[in-house]
Computed example of a mutant assay.
Amino acid sequence: MPQTTGLYPSDRQWELEGKGSPHPGVLIGGPGARSKQIEYSILAVLQVGGAMAAIWWLFTQPTGWVEWSAFISGYLIINYGLSCGFHRYFTHRSFETSLWMRYLIGICGQMACQGSVKKWAADHRRHHAFSDELGDIHSPHIDGHGRKMGPVKGLLIGHLGWLWDNAHTDMRLYGKGLVGDPVVEFCHRTRWLWVAFSLVILPAAWALAFGGPEHVVGTILVGGFLRTFIFLNGVMGTNSLAHYFGYRRYHDVGKATNNWFIAILTLGDGWHNNHHAQPRAASNHISWWELDFNGWTIDMLGRLGLVWNIQRRDKNRPVGLPEAQQLGGEPVLSFGETSKKDELVA
């Protein structure tokens, strides 16, 4: 049988039938697909295996402020790097900043252990270009080839399964401004160094500085591996849960929703419907309960003069009309949803 890069039967069949690209900007198979599968497999094994070991440690060994302070501080660092850096800066250019700050947010983002900023930002650009339609990279409604999926398979593929399909992003189209950028290329080349620093070196140093050698293993497991695993699921939940469950203020941006649970895990990125309505806006905050700590962080950096030209929301942006099936009402899966009548009037 001819060799394919498809790990899923339907993906192998796609390659064997020679169907090629399902949409401009989407590549099927080849070294790019295999490289993606290998890299994400390594990252998944590290984080899942380390998180399982951390859970075992929590049930069998005492932990204290050293381990949990490393968890909290590390969580804030990688959240800042990925949410404010990878997402709002490198992908959407929600603000401008200096060269040294670009290196800082790029490195902090790499510490989230979610792959290269170059690939991450290009993939996310493609997601916005074709949200929940043919061409989307990680929708819970259609796979990377544009085939519709049921809710169970869709949520699994949209959450993590897309990492191992054989569809990948054409960097010639979505990598503009990323490929060749010295900061992006530096972060890309050194990404495995920052994985080791995030998971092992930083938490070990934290344990030695604030506790002692007896805290090193527990701090690595809790403040390194468990921390990145929980944050990973928050980010991936934005792709899956926040395109299925929650409420929608804007009805012309695909199926992206505002999901309070994901907003907590990502410190503001879970207000995903707000984000899709105005991707370049530095903040997702609209209603009082939609707390966006990432947007506030960017605003604080702006007041300090560390970032500038911050993109603000257009308060007069129309909400659009609900889809036909929404007019009969949908279950409210998150607090704070306005009624369909109120949205139409607005």
Rank of each mutant, 00 (worst) to 15 (best):
P2E: 13
Y8G: 09
E15C: 06
G18L: 04
K19D: 02
K19Q: 14
H23G: 04
P24M: 04
V26F: 05
V26D: 05
I28C: 02
Q37C: 07
S41R: 05
A44N: 06
L46N: 01
V48L: 10
G49E: 00
G50M: 03
A51N: 04
A54K: 04
I55L: 15
W57Y: 15
L58Q: 05
F59I: 04
G64A: 13
F71I: 08
F71R: 05
G81Q: 09
L82A: 11
F90G: 10
L99G: 02
L99R: 15
W100Y: 08
I105Y: 13
I107V: 14
C108G: 04
A112S: 14
Q114V: 03
G115M: 04
A121N: 05
H124W: 05
H124P: 07
A129Y: 00
F130Y: 15
I137S: 10
I137A: 10
H141W: 14
G144A: 06
R147H: 11
G150I: 07
G154C: 07
I157S: 07
D165N: 06
N166V: 04
H168T: 13
T169N: 06
G175T: 08
K176S: 07
L178F: 00
V179D: 03
P182W: 13
V200F: 13
L202S: 11
P203A: 15
A205G: 15
W206G: 06
F210C: 04
G212R: 02
G212V: 14
P213R: 12
I220T: 13
G224S: 12
L226T: 10
I230T: 14
G234A: 05
V235G: 05
T238A: 12
L241D: 04
Y244S: 13
Y247I: 04
R249K: 15
Y250W: 15
H251L: 02
H251G: 01
V253I: 15
N258M: 13
A263W: 08
I264W: 09
I264E: 01
G268C: 09
N274M: 06
R280D: 06
A282W: 04
I286D: 01
S287N: 10
W288D: 00
M300N: 10
G302W: 10
Q311M: 12
R317F: 14
G320I: 02
P322N: 13
Q326M: 11
L327C: 09
V332S: 12
L333K: 01
D342P: 14
L344Y: 12
V345E: 15
